[in-house]
Computed example of a mutant assay.
Amino acid sequence: MSNRSLTLIIGIFVGLVVVFQSAFTVHQTQNALVLQLGKPVGGVLEPGLHFKLPFVQNVIYFDARVLDYDAQPAEALTKDKKALVLDNYARWRITDPLRFYQTVRTIPGAQARLDDIVYSQLRVFLGRYTLTEVVSSERSAIMEMVTKRSSDLISEYGIEIIDVRIKRTDLPPENQRAIFGRMRAERERQAKQYRSEGQEESTTIKSTADKEQAVILAEARRQASVIRGEGEALSTRVFAEALSKSPEFYEFQRSMEAYKKSFAGKTRILLTTDDQFLKYLK
């Protein structure tokens, strides 16, 4: 191989190296900055094919998509001095890569600033509302205010906060135990009240039943006395009528009954023969 050919090959190789070191592509989901000795040169590069000085300049890329940041749960106080453990997240994006690089440089640095700003604003706005309002009625309005205020504060870092949301709201463990204790005490109080009302109702029902029983028995006894009296009156009238029709027969029947009762068993009776009691035995 001649010297000319070798020189040509080396030249082509060096040219390719220079091209590969100079050309770079920024994807659709990215923005980029060219750094020279650690300092940005030029502006923000949009998606497409770009060139830089080889070996002297390097490129850093920034995600242009919406990013998620899931914060660690932290406590905050409401207006009525109730402690809440908030588990929140934020959706954000890089709007100015140059300022972003000059201030926070990396995604972890940006997340640290997000954590500080979002958490501080959550504490500020939650402190203006009661626990009930935070959990139910004013939750959406609070999140909108926190999002707007946090985005305004963090804009100096080239970042925009799109949305801040609370995933879950819990109570601290000591508060949970206290609330469970109050709930248990309230349920026990209600149970005692229900038992007391049940016993009162039971006593009322028993008293009413005893009263009705006494009234029914008294009425039954009265009716029985009336019927018994009517029966005795009828019996007396029948005996009287029978006696008036045949006094001798009545006297005979009564004597037979007296004999039957007197002479039953091993009874001994001493009577004279002319005793009136024995006149029907003669």
Rank of each mutant, 00 (worst) to 15 (best):
R139E: 04
I161E: 13
A71I: 13
T130S: 03
R195V: 15
E160S: 13
W92P: 13
E133W: 05
V44H: 00
F125R: 00
I159A: 10
V118E: 06
G181I: 05
S137K: 11
S262K: 08
R184H: 08
K52T: 01
S235D: 12
E241P: 10
Q36M: 09
V215M: 12
Y69N: 13
V85R: 04
T267E: 05
F125C: 03
M183I: 13
Q176A: 00
Y119F: 03
T147P: 07
T169C: 04
Y101W: 06
Y61I: 06
F125D: 00
V104I: 04
F51K: 02
A224L: 09
K192L: 11
E144G: 05
V18H: 02
I205V: 15
D210Y: 12
V146G: 06
D96Y: 03
V34F: 04
G198M: 14
S2R: 11
S22V: 08
Q28S: 15
E200I: 11
E232F: 08
V146D: 00
Q121M: 06
V226T: 09
D116P: 02
F125Q: 00
E200W: 07
Y69P: 09
Q176D: 01
F252R: 12
F249Y: 14
I60C: 06
K148M: 02
T7Y: 03
L278T: 11
D63G: 08
P73M: 02
R195N: 08
R99Y: 03
A64H: 05
F20T: 04
E241R: 14
L270I: 08
V118S: 11
T132G: 01
L243K: 07
D63W: 05
N31Q: 13
K167I: 06
Y129V: 03
L217G: 11
I162C: 12
L281T: 09
A209R: 07
M145W: 02
P173C: 02
L98F: 01
K266V: 04
Q72T: 13
E46C: 00
Y194T: 14
A32Q: 05
F51H: 03
L86R: 06
V59W: 02
Q36L: 05
H50W: 07
S140P: 09
L126D: 00
M143K: 06
T29F: 15
D275C: 00
L171W: 01
Y89R: 04
K211E: 10
R254A: 12
V34G: 02
I161M: 14
Q253F: 14
V238I: 15
Y89S: 07
E186I: 09
Y89D: 03
K79Y: 09
Q36V: 09
I154H: 11
R189G: 15
L33Q: 02
S140Q: 14
D63T: 10
A240S: 09
Y69F: 15
M145G: 01
P73Q: 04
G181M: 10
F62K: 03
S140L: 13
K167R: 15
L122F: 12
L217V: 15
V104G: 01
W92C: 05
K211F: 13
I142V: 09
A90I: 15
S151A: 12
P54H: 02
T106P: 04
K148S: 10
R65D: 07
A110R: 08
I9H: 01
R165F: 02
A32Y: 07
T7C: 00
F249I: 13
Q72C: 00
E241G: 10
A258V: 10
Y119P: 00
E248W: 11
Q28W: 15
E197C: 06
A220S: 06
F13N: 10
L234T: 11
T132R: 09
D210G: 07
